[in-house]
Write a protein that binds this DNA or RNA. Structure first.
Length: 435
DNA sequence: TCTGGGGTCCTAGGACCC
DNA sequence: TCTGGGGTCCTAGGACCC
């Protein structure tokens, strides 16, 4: 099941004056891309993943809005609530899509086609959104069916989709027969090119090569998946409650950064974002990774794994600093990313916390972390209060003196007064909240 | 026309342990 | 003296999905 033009549709719901207009969500700048486009925009050829510059050219009146992901998450939760009423056996994929295992409906004597239609009605009535449902014997056919359920643009006009589509077992073979390999899960541009070199364009072509040969070109894992798909088989289960494995923050800059100084400034901001995300999700991370992409779009990454988990900005920044130092920054940097992985439950980390300094001294580059860990314990109450204020009033409602100085506020003259002004206090995206 | 940001998974090499 | 085979963990890079 997946929501139609999700981000763009939420924007239209929240601002009805956008209804009927070509709307997209994405980055509007020179380096922006489209994340989601309304059907009106799609009539002009606007598609997700398209560079915004191209989208504007295709559709000069296109309205490109920045994403409001907190809002999309609210809708996503409601979407999941409706799905959960149907079955608890579902697996979200991003914010706007779920795979659901409907076998439990059999016991209740509910037909999947009826359940799907009822689900669509509820999504429309309760959320004001539209969604398509694809039914099939496994994820492979469900996904194909879901695509078929959607509205389509034909000759610049919009053609309604059926809303619910079922690939029945009897039809599976004929569906596979006309399917290009590129349409399969996991086959992107690179794999499609490799397969093309082997003369494999269609799914039916895959059936005539043996898996070992395939594996030499695309690896054993991909080969096994492709061999299965060619037979209409799909070994992927619907996994309920998939655990989060990593989180991070990447930013492409409108103007590339040059030199260690500018990268350090980005690192500081990123460390704050990642640290807050870890705390919000109640995780501590053992591995910190930095990613640097240069103007020629080549990337390098550096990572370090500690013997204990961290979740505060000072520690993450300290590790990030050491990692950034090991990157040659003589070329300008279009993207900087900071990621955290190797999660521990906070309770699993307690032992490490009390032995933090001793443990850290065994980690080659983690001296700085030991210091900030000591400080973290002292400041935990303050930190939690800061998190809470930012959660309620927006990320920019509080700023450190350093951040204010960077914004040009003369912190020294502000002592004894509230050292913030409207330019930093107000989250520009949300004017309904008064800090 | 020139490509985001949130993620997951796979591969390959090296270090290390038993 | 030179050596294996099973396994885990870490690092770096790449492909892919929404």
């Amino acid at each position: 099941m997946d929501l139609d033009a999700f981000f763009a549709s939420v924007e239209v719901l929240d601002d009805p004056s956008l209804r009927g207009k070509p709307v997209a969500v994405g980055g509007a700048g020179e380096r922006g891309v489209i994340a989601s486009a309304s059907y009106e925009a799609r009539r002009y050829g606007v598609r997700s993943a398209m560079p915004s510059v191209i989208a504007k050219r295709a559709c000069p009146l296109l309205i490109i809005l920045p994403g409001r992901f907190d809002r999309y998450e609210e809708y996503s939760r409601q979407f999941h609530d409706v799905v959960r009423d149907l079955t608890p056996d579902y697996e979200p994929l991003g914010l706007d899509e779920v795979f659901a295992d409907l076998r439990s409906l059999r016991r209740l004597d509910v037909r999947p086609l009826d359940a799907a239609a009822a689900l669509r009605r509820r999504i429309t009535n309760e959320l004001g959104l539209h969604c398509g449902v694809g039914l099939g014997r496994n994820k492979l056919f469900a996904k194909l069916a879901s695509k078929e359920s959607k509205p389509r643009v034909v000759d610049r006009g919009l053609v309604e989709g059926p809303g619910v589509f079922w690939v029945s077992p009897a039809q599976e073979a004929e569906w596979l027969d006309v399917l290009p390999v590129r349409a399969l899960w996991g086959v992107g541009p690179a794999t499609a090119a490799k397969l093309s070199q082997l003369g494999l364009t269609w799914v039916r072509d895959l059936a005539r090569v043996d898996e070992a040969t395939l594996a030499q070109h695309v690896g054993p894992s991909m080969a096994a998946a492709l061999a299965a798909y060619a037979k209409g088989e799909d070994f992927r289960d619907v996994v309920v409650d998939r655990a989060l494995k990593s989180l991070g923050h990447d930013q492409t800059f409108a103007r590339s950064l040059t030199g260690l100084g500018e990268v350090r400034e980005a690192l500081k901001v990123h460390a704050g974002v990642v640290a807050r995300a870890l705390r919000e999700k109640d995780r501590v991370a053992r591995t910190i990774t930095v990613i640097v992409r240069f103007d020629d779009r080549t990337s390098v990454s550096r990572s370090q794994t500690l013997s204990f988990g961290i979740d505060d900005e000072d520690a993450i920044e300290a590790i990030g600093e050491a990692l950034v130092q090991s990157v040659d920054l003589s070329r300008s940097v279009r993207l900087f990313g900071l990621h955290a992985s190797g999660f521990l439950e906070r309770s699993e980390n307690q032992m490490q916390l009390s032995f933090g300094i001793e443990t850290a001294s065994r980690d080659a580059k983690a001296g700085a972390v030991a210091i900030s860990r000591g400080r973290q314990v002292d400041n935990e109450a303050l930190r939690d209060a800061i998190d809470e204020v930012r959660r309620r009033f927006g990320r920019t409602s509080l700023a450190t003196a350093n951040e204010l100085s960077e914004k040009g506020v003369d912190v020294a003259t502000q002592r004894g007064r509230h050292a913030f002004g409207p330019e930093v206090a107000r989250d520009e995206r949300d004017t309904t909240r008064e800090p």
